[in-house]
Write a protein that binds this DNA or RNA. Structure first.
Lengths: 214, 214
DNA sequence: AAACAACACGAACGATCGTACTATTTTCTT
DNA sequence: AAGAAAATAGTACGATCGTTCGTGTTGTTT
């Protein structure tokens, strides 16, 4: 999952001051774009508003991306990089198996509860926005979601291989249950304006892990 | 929950042909509005587009609701009436307790899987759209969600009172887990374009109910 | 110093948005 | 048949949308 997360946010070894300036503003734009989109949605991302908030020109802004749809796709990639850095990478420090699985789930809950994006989980917001609307944006969002659910399932399978999970457990089913708790806590913490649901999710996660453990 | 679900959709005993005509078009508008909003969102509900699709004038359409926000709120009420009719009422035929709980959950899965709204669950779509945006619409959506989760919790409590659920089970926690499965299946059936996730949700529901049963 | 390249800006475009105001048509009342 | 009432239609408004084009501005290369 984390093989190439430098698409838009870190061109690295560029010495040319002109393109460095361009990359800097592109980074500034995307940083703001992910925050706005997590609240207003990817459709609510308006070029004029974004340019106004950043005090740059509409034309100068869109020149970096070509079209609005490409700006939206770049925003998704930028959000994915932030997600990987916030949730995935820290968990990779734990040894694979149940320990890493717990780290992943807890990191996700913190990522949501700490409002790493002001509107909660960026992908939960975007997924519901485009789930029923075919197109490149939906495909990109669906791909990230499958990556995430697949990672959880793979980690369950690892724990199974190590003998920490019962042999008759289906990793895909366990993963389905676990991500369901996370998504539900994310949404309802926003709706209810309280963090209590995160503890409900933690209880649910622990129960599910205990049930699957050998 | 179902004490007053006739707000916008059925004025019933009106004899005046003029207001009957108005109620008819209002019903036509809202029927289309809930379908559009379940796909494009409540913000994507545009008056001009709605009027165009129904071959009526923008001004004539909006005159029924006053402002766009009130049209959106009326759309929420109309969607709630459909939800109550599709999911709640059929389940009330079952005896209270575990039987009714199972009917509620299965009815919800069919309501989502059968695409009673073309974009899947109307409220899941709308909730994520407004979860992080304060206002009347968010409040209305949050209220419906609390009604629904509360109904599931109350039904669990009923089953507990009858002795079908273990005394040490927390109805709120059981309800949290159950609605999480439903929401997750709804979203991912749309994202993946397959109905398999509904079976995953059914397995999860059965496991959770078995764990809570006494 | 001159030529070139990348970025940023301002102005304008057609389109659509929500809304307000003013007829016109339809239906009921008397 | 005449008038009131309600629904519908028509028109126009300012604002914002995404996009395009021409022109500076800044940095690099030769």
């Amino acid at each position: 999952m984390s093989e190439q997360l430098v698409d838009d946010t870190s061109p690295e070894g560029v010495t040319d001051g002109r393109v460095r300036r361009g990359d800097r503003t592109r980074r500034v734009v995307l940083r703001r774009a992910v925050d706005v989109a997590s609240v207003e949605g990817l459709e609510g991302l308006s070029i004029g508003r974004l340019a106004g908030e950043l005090s740059i020109s509409k034309s100068g802004l869109i020149a970096h991306f070509g079209t609005k749809e490409q700006l939206q796709l770049a925003t998704i990639r930028a959000a994915r990089a932030i997600f990987v850095h916030s949730v995935i990478e820290p968990a990779l420090e734990s040894t694979q198996g149940m320990a890493r699985l717990r780290r992943l789930l807890e990191a996700w809950l913190e990522y949501s509860c700490d409002r790493r994006f002001p509107g909660g989980c960026f992908f939960s917001r975007a997924a519901h926005e485009y789930a029923a609307r075919p197109g490149a944006i939906r495909d990109a969002i669906a791909a990230v979601d499958e990556e995430w659910v697949g990672l959880i399932a793979a980690t369950v399978a690892e724990a199974q291989a190590v003998g920490e999970v019962r042999a008759d457990a289906d990793p895909a089913l366990v993963a389905f249950d676990l991500v369901s708790y996370l998504d539900s806590a994310n949404l309802r913490s926003l709706l209810l304006g309280t963090d209590d649901v995160y503890d409900q999710a933690r209880v649910a996660v622990e129960r599910r892990l205990a049930d699957a453990a050998s």
